[in-house]
């Protein structure tokens, strides 16, 4: 099959199977792109999500563009991205045209409650899979725990400096990602050089 068509189709599948935000697409991505196609590794997915957190745009779209670009340059990126948004375009247009009270149908409400409970389990399972490849040593586990704690600290603690809420700022994903990058540089970048000097 033509690779561009394959990219379009695979990401259309991811688009159909994703309910909610970008994180809900992770289990489907792992299945289709990592296990099914071998287009990326689990660690690469975390890289793309990390970059997607700090760059403009929808995380799901950013990830599709990344993987498509990595495989086949600009055209690949475009094919993957259009594939991802195609199902939404069709489904939402149909619903907007025919069923403006779609979200209030009892069947939809109940089915969605079931889907949401399932998505929680899917994300939990994906995080465990990711953790196996990204949390291999003390330093990475420390970064994981710090980010998890800081990211949620604003729910418990409140402190502000000069009108800026401190924990609110610290819990912003973009800030946490930048701090983690610096930590990575200090631990692995500087550490290795020091080791070589000996």
């Amino acid at each position: 099959m033509n690779i561009y068509f394959d990219l379009f189709l695979t990401f259309a599948k991811v688009g159909v199977c994703t309910f909610g935000g970008g994180y809900a697409m992770l289990p489907i991505l792992q299945r289709e792109v990592v296990e099914g196609r071998g287009w990326a590794a689990d660690e690469e997915l975390t890289d793309y999500f990390a970059i997607g957190q700090c760059t403009p745009g929808i995380i799901a779209v950013n990830t599709a563009t990344f993987i498509g670009y990595k495989l086949r340059g600009v055209l690949g990126g475009v094919a993957a991205t259009l594939g991802l948004v195609f199902p939404s375009l069709v489904i939402i247009t149909v619903i907007a045209a025919c069923l403006s009270n779609f979200a209030q149908f009892p069947v939809v409400v109940h089915a969605l409650a079931g889907v949401n409970a399932c998505v929680v389990a899917l994300i939990a399972s994906s995080v465990i899979k990711l953790g196996k490849s990204t949390l291999k040593n003390g330093a990475s586990i420390t970064i994981f725990l710090c980010v998890l704690a800081l990211g949620n600290a604003n729910r418990v603690f409140h402190a502000s400096v000069g009108g800026i809420s401190l924990f609110e700022l610290l819990s912003s994903p973009a800030v946490l990602i930048v701090l983690a990058g610096i930590a990575g540089y200090v631990v692995w970048g500087l550490g290795k050089k020091g080791g070589e000097r000996k």
Binding site: Y23, L26, E43, T46, D47, F49, A50, Q53, I123, S126, V127, L130, G131, T134, L135, S140, I141, I143, F144, L145, C146, V147, L148, G151, P173, L176, I177, L179, A180, G181, I182, A183, G184, Y185, V187, W188, G189, K192
Partner: peptide, 14 residues
């Protein structure tokens, strides 16, 4: 090295 630091952070955010 930067990505070594980003990966556990990204996992934590997810």
């Amino acid at each position: 090295a930067l990505f070594q630091g980003l990966r556990p952070a990204s996992t934590a955010l997810i």
